[in-house]
Design a protein around this nucleic acid. Structure first.
Lengths: 335, 335
DNA sequence: TCTTGATGGCAAGACGGTTTTGCAACTAGC
DNA sequence: GCTAGTTGCAAAACCGTCTTGCCATCAAGA
């Protein structure tokens, strides 16, 4: 920047980065002038000098079999957008990397670190990145991983329990779980928490797993089946919002009243609300924006060697709405 | 790269970039050694020297009112992923920019060029970028823009006509259009093409516009209304796939047989197929991947000053499926 | 044989910062 | 009053590539 502003480039660099030995007075003056001139250091030059690229990679890990079923686009969009914004805030750029190009040493972009979203057990990419000792943060844990790794995840066990508690307090007698096969830590956690909760409450588990794409249609089909059981559920916890919307349509088609005869809770993103035309659905918000943001922050901390790893748990929030609008009994914790 | 490989850095640079005056023999030798060493020039240094950042920004333009309704995540995901891959292929990194941070000179990242997806009429971002003379490509046209701008778009007029022709050849008597308010060039084009086609074929237009979020539920509601008209449509063209899926559910609920009593055609992405549980739906594929890819290519051509602008039309493809499975009459073009 | 022109390749500067080193000037202790 | 330590800042080296300028070398023409 115009050393014209009084001092040498060295001093400017020192002042702006809080490095060298400078009196506060000089720092302030440099900062003032910089602000005045709207000076912003050139990121490319800074990266060159620092031996970095300024890029972070984000890959969505999904095995080929369910990649096309990856219909929970809203979740990923939300997460990715927040991650990108968080990266920009801190002077990095987030680049979406197709999982098939890879970030490996051999091909693809040179990045300073990587985020892998919802890693699937045995995904070779994880191993490849670790072998290359690339700074790595996963969103959702790697199933079967040792502790000490860097990840950001919801507390799905607590979240699931809070959703079930919510239903239990409203006198649900038989709660069904609508979910998917367990390929990522999310589905593993939810199903285990559900079964544990059922055991704790002497309730018989009723799990409906769809391996179709996660659409309202799949939810419609699954819920129709559940509702035609001899002893149908009076509450449903859906691990994807669109399954819940489908369940609502199924209930409507069968004249099952929501919430009186059937309560529905779904996991959701910020954008899930109001997407169904029926009663608004009580949601367990996963806060994907926070997930994305925290993942980036953790990754940058690792890249800049402030920490080596870290396990970040993002809490979930239950948002009561019409689909579970029954008076809660006094027993149990308050929502 | 190790000038250790025989020559000077200058020669390496010249050889690898096909610049200076070098005999083919030297070039080949350098290339061979480079490949041998797995040498890849440092992008950061290259950018510094070239005075660029190596970054392209991609913004999704949506007015606040419908941003939350942006449920067509699959389309954007597809487009964005393809754009990102195309950029990486050419040595650039694509970064998603939140529309509120902006790419303006004042704030945000420094990028070499920008892509604005589905610009809304009067979006200030467009003007800001143009004022800063930032290389710009839009995906979908800016409504009311003069020619000569750089954009990539589907030929929605031709596409809509081909979808309607497809229905017409199968003896549709009354075709309804399910769509949204006209805020982007896409919705404008589709509705105009539909009305023109109706006029050409002496058919009374029947347009159902939903301003709800674009979910199956909205499609369900809109289709239910259409089907309860005194003179209900016997074919529906839906400008969003989820509207069509909802229509299918509505038809099913009313025992309207598809395709015998009602044919359905939707615009779609690669991932739309198989998302409904009913009959598979004939689709007008918009090829969002191609849109994203072509947009990046065009933008890079502009950034590197090979061209100044360009209008790229990506064709659409009609994919006949069960929802319009009727014998086509001999009249008209073949599908 | 000498000049001229084309050709092949190297050296140095530029890009815009960061970081290290070095040098005054000032302060303090004895 | 001299040495030692501290403080404030500038000069220089470096990051890895591209670009420009220039010196050889060699062949052809005079």
């Amino acid at each position: 920047m115009a050393a014209a502003a009084g001092v040498s480039v060295t001093t400017v660099s020192h002042a702006l980065n809080g490095k060298g030995r400078l009196p506060q007075e000089t720092r302030d003056r440099v900062h003032a002038v910089a602000k005045d001139l709207g000076y912003r250091p050139n990121a490319t030059a800074r990266n060159l000098a620092g031996g970095k690229t300024g890029l972070l990679g984000l890959v969505i890990s999904q095995p080929a079999t369910i990649r096309s079923a990856l219909s929970d686009f809203a979740y990923f969009t939300s997460l990715t957008a927040a991650a990108s914004a968080a990266a920009l805030d801190r002077g990095y750029a987030l680049v979406l990397t197709p999982s098939d190009i890879g970030l490996g040493a051999a091909v693809g972009v040179a990045v300073d670190g990587a985020i892998v979203v919802d890693p699937v057990e045995g995904d070779p990419l994880i191993q490849e990145l670790r072998d290359a000792s690339m700074p790595l943060v996963t969103t959702g844990r790697v199933v079967g991983d040792d502790p000490g790794r860097a990840w950001v995840d919801n507390d799905h066990v607590a979240g699931t329990r809070s959703a079930l508690d919510h239903l239990g307090r409203r006198n649900a007698r038989r709660i069904a779980l609508m979910t998917t096969p367990t390929v990522i830590s999310y589905s593993v956690d939810v199903e285990r928490a559900y079964r544990d909760w059922c055991a704790d409450h002497a309730m018989e588990p009723l799990v409906s797993k769809t391996d179709q794409q996660l659409t309202e249609s799949a939810g419609y089909a699954a819920a129709s089946e559940l509702l035609s059981l001899p002893d149908p559920p009076d509450a449903i916890f859906a691990s994807y919002d669109r399954l819940a919307f489908g369940a609502l349509l199924a209930a409507n088609a069968r004249d099952v009243a929501v919430p009186d005869e059937l309560m529905v809770v779904m996991t959701a993103t910020e954008s899930s609300h109001g997407q169904s035309s029926g009663p608004s659905v009580t949601a367990l918000d996963l806060h994907p924006k926070q997930i994305g943001q925290r993942a980036v922050e953790l990754l940058i901390d690792i890249v800049e060697e402030r920490v080596e790893g870290g396990e970040v748990l993002v809490p979930t929030t239950i948002i009561p709405r019409a689909s579970t609008k029954r008076p809660a009994t006094g027993r149990g914790k308050r929502a």
